[in-house]
């Protein structure tokens, strides 16, 4: 007998503004070794990047969220469901693409993805139909009747992605999805992740040590180091937060303008006439630049802050 989805609290849509993932002093220990130490954070972004060097605890955090690792202390929730007390409800909402090989070599892709859909609760016919659809969606349509053991590494990654989304989860956790992929396969994987984000049907957690992958796809980042959160930020806000570096373009006679800026404490370099690169001192107000330009009858045509790259943000977090 089939149950209407509306009556199953496990798969109900998250209420508005409920954090996707919320951690409160979450600690995980393996034996006496503390792997995750007192993580407290609330993640709300549509695509969340989980960054950190190798051994930072990214995969352990994911496994803890899925209920694979016992929580030593603290709490964690996914869409408001406790990861310890309501593991089954959490798992009903989540699709997971693990980092390592994960498949049954003797099964065809369509059987494997269909079986995973059925185990997630899809009726048999629906699971088979959606297995075909997601395999076409990820680009394995023509190879869907081949045994998974015969797939290349890139195809296996795509098959893992297919099984993670076959049941239409609200949150998809991707652990190092571009690991071992060649550049075209990597680009394809990132395009799929962006498409899934833009579909608005799901939220994504992308765990990677490749900054470029996260930069290309994520809105929010959580940086871990040695099992602790060293940085958490909205990527767009963070990129524009560093307002010390300024690019300036002027039109007019700019003789002495650079010297005047230096007199206000700015480090200034002129690459070509009319183009200045400034490093502003702490507490500097931009109106001072406009005042100086006004005094010299200079037109300011362009003034912009140089955006921090994710690499800048990451390196700063690591230094901290």
């Amino acid at each position: 007998m089939l149950q209407p989805i509306q009556t199953d609290s496990a798969v109900s849509s998250p209420p508005p503004k409920t954090p996707v993932i919320q951690l409160d002093r979450l600690t995980v220990c393996f034996g006496r070794r503390e792997i995750l130490g007192g993580l407290t954070v609330s993640l709300t972004g549509r695509t969340i990047g989980l960054l950190g060097p190798n051994g930072a605890g990214k995969s352990t955090l994911i496994q803890t969220l899925l209920g694979f690792c016992p929580v030593s202390s603290g709490t964690g929730t996914i869409f408001g469901h406790d990861i310890v007390r309501a593991t089954r409800q959490v798992r009903a909402l989540v699709g997971y693409m693990p980092e390592n090989d994960a498949f049954v070599a003797e099964m065809t892709a369509v059987d494997f993805v269909g079986m995973m859909g059925e185990i997630s609760g899809l009726p048999r016919e629906v699971a088979l139909e959606r297995a075909h659809e997601v395999l076409f969606y990820v680009g394995l349509g023509e190879a869907r009747y081949r045994e998974l053991g015969t797939y290349s590494l890139g195809m296996k990654q795509l098959a893992k992605l297919a099984q993670a989304i076959v049941h239409g989860p609200k949150l998809v956790i991707l652990d190092e999805p571009t690991n071992g992929l060649d550049p075209p396969a990597r680009a394809r994987m990132l395009r799929l992740i962006r498409e899934m984000k833009e579909s608005g049907e799901m939220q994504l957690v992308l765990c990677s040590h490749l900054l470029r992958d996260v930069e290309e796809t994520c809105e929010e980042v959580l940086i871990l180091k040695q099992g602790r959160i060293v940085h958490h930020a909205d990527l767009a806000v963070e990129r524009s937060a560093n307002q010390r570096f300024v690019d300036l373009e002027t039109v007019g006679a700019d003789a002495g303008f650079a010297a005047a800026l230096a007199g206000l404490g700015c480090a200034c370099s002129v690459s070509v006439p009319g183009r200045f690169k400034l490093v502003l001192p702490a507490g500097f107000e931009l109106k001072e630049i406009y005042r100086l330009a006004g005094e010299r009858d200079l037109q300011i045509r362009h003034l912009s802050y140089r955006r921090d790259t994710l690499e800048d943000i990451f390196l700063k977090a690591m230094e901290n």
Binding site: I5, V134, H167, S199, M202
Partner: peptide
């Protein structure tokens, strides 16, 4: 294109 699932679930 990707579409979520909003149908019925098995027990």
């Amino acid at each position: 294109s990707y579409k979520g699932y909003t149908g019925v679930l098995t027990p």
